[in-house]
Design a binder for these strands. Sequence first.
RNA 1: GGAGAGGUGGCAGAGUGGUUGAAUGCACCUGAUUCGAAAUCAGGCGUGCGUGCAAGCGUACCGGGGGUUCGAAUCCCUCCCUCUCCGCCA
Length: 427
Amino acid sequence: MLQLKVLREEKQRVLAGLRKRNWSAAQLKVVDTILQIDDQRRVTQKELDDTLAEMNRLSKTIGQLMGQGKSAEAESAKAQVAELKEISRQLESRQLDIKTRLDELLYSVPNIPSKLVPKGKSADDNKVAKDWTKPFPEFGEDALPHWELGKKYNLFDFELGVKLTGSGFPVYRGKGARLQRALIQFFLDENIKAGYEEILPPHLVNEDTARATGQLPDKEAQMYKCDLDNLYLIPTAEVPVTNLVRDEIVPYKNLPLRFTAYTPCFRREAGAWGAHVRGLNRLHQFDKVEIVVVEHPEKSYETLKGMISHVSKILAKLEIPYRILRLCGGDMGFTSALTYDFEAWSGAQKRWLEISSVSNFETFQSNRLQLRYRDGDGKIQLTHTLNGSSLALPRVMAALLENNQTPEGIKIPKALWKYTGFKIIEA
RNA sequence: GGAGAGGUGGCAGAGUGGUUGAAUGCACCUGAUUCGAAAUCAGGCGUGCGUGCAAGCGUACCGGGGGUUCGAAUCCCUCCCUCUCCGCCA
């Protein structure tokens, strides 16, 4: 959620940012509407505060008058308070109305893209920030996509998943399960080495938590819900982990806060099925290791770079060909100010698969979270937040299997040996 | 799940209808003292919103929501949570 202060004081920058997100002139009018409603809000707030102040003053007087036995005067003051109370009730309900409308509109405004975000309408306009310059793995005609490899080597089973749950819930087994666990362990260890604190959060969250990171109200349809208990299955570790610091005021010297967490992620993906979602490419439940950073505003872009090079190093160790995209205004997520996507080369599908998305949210998340820091001279300011996947498992698995297939079996990259306990997956 | 107790500022802990945004202690910050430190003394020390150049002022907040009252941390209702005992259980 953008700060009202920013809309008020930097309206031109906000408008320019929304244009970069391809907002039409008609859509841009919402900014003026918000500012108008905010004016109303402030006027009403003043009236309400003044009314309450008068009531408080009179109430104190009544106490004194009663003490002095001046009951007639006390009674007349009571009558006055009763009138004021009626007025204050009206003002309160008007104010509630105004705030509700204001929040609704404010929630509909996405983050302002940073200067580095390229213009563009769709994924085709993303800029390649770092391309893969080395050769790609080459295969003959008989190269198998990962879903075939999964069957051939008995690594995961979609039919069994359907039997137990439904489509999009694969069962990993044997070396497939072991490889999955190895990857999780490897990613976590790399992150811990890089200074991230490991978190193992709950996989279900309450409404407040889902609201604070923006899953509610906008993305309710994306989450699985346990109606009986009013809890949501997390769509990403970002939700519980970022909420660790909800309503916190962090001392300046404690920044940055760096967390990493492995969790399964649950996504309904309603209406998202279509082409290109075979096998592990898109699932309702998948594993992901996430990194989350809370940072000083002046350092957040430097930190973003650090996160990108960190993820790059992990991919290099896995020996997976990858490229990095800087997302354009049309393709970037609602809450992000700048996003880099990592894509892994999938040798048999012969396409790039998104395996990580690393973003700086600036104050967009911390505003709703009320996540602040106290700087050197005691002033309280919103922090910047950043997060990224390091990494999303299924597509990494897909790329690994496809790229490393040989007539002898699937070769496991060296970095994983100590986690898998095997170097090759054979028939 | 049942019975009981309880949720107050960073922590501990007073406060059962008015002058309490909240005693006191600890922690923390500033100053005095000191060669420096400890100890001691003096002062300061919550957050949101509104207003103001600012100092400040107004307002709201004592687990969440609602109610009674001229007035609520204090009384009532409801929900949530914690602790103790019992039951169940990985």
